[in-house]
Amino acid sequence: MTDVAYIDRPNRPLYVYAIFYLAFLYIPVMFLPLFSFNDNIYITFPLKGFTIQWYVAMFKDQPMWAALNNSLRVGCVSSAIATLLGLFVAKAVTRYRIPGVKPIIFVIMLPMVVPLIIMGVALLILVTRLGFNLSLYTITMAHVLISVPFAMATLISRFEGFDPSMEEASSDLGAGPWSTFWRVTLPMVAPGVLASFLLCFTISFDDFIMAFFLGGTDPTLPIFIWGQLRFPFRLPGVLALGSLILIISFVVVFISLWLRRWGVEDTQSGI
């Protein structure tokens, strides 16, 4: 029966467990799309019938479009900045011998573990002390902060997958630092840059806590949804919107994680 090593023999109970685990991860969120097509204002079994009225209503909802617009703008700007910063850090830590680089990385990684409420509160205090108004800009700033660790992690793994002698060869052939960056470094880490951008974008797009503390009068999409949750008659609309967001963010994150690894093995085997 076995063409595999003793250690690697299949383990059926574990396999069943793994399937259950994935079900536990995915089934709860599956209820959102399920009920979003249910012709009932109350979210409850039994299902009453198929409808797309919640989606139609959602598409006519002007504030929703405004919030979506805000979220897209904040997401694009913050993930572009975070990716750029992550790119600098990744290049620095993988290419140069820097004294004390470990504590520096630790500090940059902190937003990944420190409770978001702490950073939200601290930023709120800073912003008000400086006399700034809360706005989409302050949210963007906060999103850069919480995205940088993810951008850095994504890009470092990409940089580690490519040989520094490529950049040396470029400068050896006469290219200055900028030229080398555009002609060699960027093309080679491009999948990582895209992966980082998409990941940061979903982080910003999904963030509620930072936007909650640092948002002004313009809501982002999660803030908008939060507002809707207070009204029971609005819930089916949230289901419709949420289903769309979930599907889109699943796809985007999947692409991002796939890109992050894609091509790394490829270049290594190519060398």
């Binding site: 040989d163 002698s165 490529m166 040396e168 060869a169 470029s170 050896d172 052939l173 006469g174 290219a175 030229s179 002609r183 060699v184 093309p187 080679m188 270049t267 190519g270 060398i271």
Partner: peptide, 26 residues
Amino acid sequence: TNMVFQNYAIFPHLNVRANIAYGLRY
């Protein structure tokens, strides 16, 4: 000076022609 690297460092995103012509731009 120009260098031939130990692992050759041929740019994987460029073809042979572009690799060879790489440094002439400067």
